[in-house]
Simulated scan of single mutants.
Amino acid sequence: MNAGHNKSEGDVAKANGKEATLHQTILSEIEGRIVSGEWPPGFRLPFEVDLAEHYGCSRMTVNKVMTQLAKAGLVERHRKAGSFVTRPRAQSAVLELHDIEAEVKSLGLPYSYSLVSRKERPSNAKDRSLMELAGTTPMVELVAVHRAGSKPFCVEERRINAGVVPEALGTDFKVHAPGGWLIAQVPWSAAENRILAVAASAETARLLEQPKGSPCLVVERRTWSHAGPVTFVRLTYPGDSHTLVARFAPAS
C-alpha cells in the first residue's frame, strides 16, 4: 500500500515538473519570436489548442503562458479571435536597440571597447527613480568607452538590476560590452528611449577626448522584461559625429 502510494506521488511530481519545464520553454520561444520581430505587431499567434498539440502539453499550460505574455504587454487576447502580438500604442516612440559594435562597423571602422569602472552595490534612491524599482535590489554599475578606430565613439554609463539578472554579479564585462550580453541573457519586453542634447561634463569630455562643454547627443534607455526593470543606460556621443534616424509611415 505504501509503495503504491509513494509511486503515485512520484508520478504526480514528475508530471508537475514536466509541465513547469514546458511552461518555461513555450514562454521563452514565443517571447523570443516576438522580441526578434519574427512575429511582428499584429501577428496572430497559433491558437492555444494548436500550441498544446505542438508542444505535447495540456491546454492549461499554454493558457498560463498566454496570460503571462499578456501581463507583460507582449500580446493582446481577444475572445474567439485569438491572441495577437501587441501593436505599439499611439504617441509611443519606437527606436531599435542598436548594437554599438554594429554601428561602428557599418562606418567601415574597427571597433574596440574598454571598461572604465565596475561597481556592485545595493540600489539607491537615484536607481529607484531612474528604473522605477519597487524596493532595494543588488545593482551592477558600469562605465565604459566604445571606440571607432582611434577615436572614442560613445561613453556608456549603465546600471543593471541584478535582482532580475543575477548573472551580472559574476560577470566582469572587461571583454564583452553589457548591451549584447544583456539581450542574450534576458529578452526585453519593453523599452523607452529619451534623447537629450547636453554639454559634456569634465569627466565625459575626458573620456570622449573632447573639450569640456562640447555639445553631446545623449540617449537614455530603460528596458524591462516580464520579471521587472532590467537596465538603465546613458549613451553619450560627440554631437558633431552622430545622427539618430527614425523611419515611420502614416498611421493606417
Rank of each mutant, 00 (worst) to 15 (best):
Ala134Trp: 09
Cys57Gln: 03
Gln68Val: 10
Leu74Ile: 07
Ala205Lys: 02
His226Pro: 00
Leu109Lys: 13
Ala70Asn: 11
Arg118His: 09
Pro187Asp: 05
Gly17His: 10
Pro211Val: 10
Ser58Arg: 14
Val35Ala: 14
Pro41Tyr: 09
Ala134Thr: 15
Ala81Tyr: 12
Gly180Thr: 04
Gln91His: 12
Ala199Thr: 09
Ala144Phe: 01
Asp240Leu: 04
Leu107His: 15
Lys174Arg: 09
Gly37Glu: 10
Thr236Cys: 00
Ile26Asn: 03
Met60Gly: 09
Leu169Ala: 01
Ser83Lys: 00
Gly149Asp: 04
His176Arg: 09
Lys126Glu: 15
Val155Tyr: 01
Asn193Arg: 08
Pro215Asp: 10
His242Gln: 12
Leu182Gly: 06
Arg33Thr: 02
Ser36Met: 08
Ala191Arg: 12
Leu95Asn: 08
Thr67Pro: 00
Gly179Asn: 11
Thr243Tyr: 00
Thr231Arg: 10
Ser83Cys: 13
Glu48Cys: 10
Thr25Phe: 07
Arg206Trp: 00
Trp39Tyr: 13
Ala125Gly: 04
Pro187Leu: 01
Leu45Gly: 12
Met66Ala: 02
Lys18Ile: 12
Gly17Leu: 15
Gly56Ser: 08
Val35Arg: 14
Cys57Arg: 04
Glu53Ser: 13
Asp50Met: 14
Gly239Phe: 00
Pro178Ser: 14
Cys216Phe: 01
Cys216Val: 08
His5Gly: 00
Arg222Gln: 11
Ile30Asn: 02
Phe47Met: 14
Arg59Ser: 12
Met131Asp: 04
Arg221Asn: 02
Ser129Asp: 12
Val49His: 13
Thr243Ile: 06
Thr21Val: 15
His226Trp: 03
His98Trp: 05
Pro46His: 06
Thr21Phe: 11
Ala148Gly: 13
Lys71Pro: 00
Leu95Asp: 03
Thr236Tyr: 03
Val164Cys: 09
Ala125Lys: 13
Phe153Leu: 02
Arg128Tyr: 03
Leu169Cys: 01
Pro46Gly: 09
Gly37Ala: 12
Gly56Ile: 11
Glu9Met: 12
Thr67Phe: 05
Glu96Trp: 05
Lys14Gln: 12
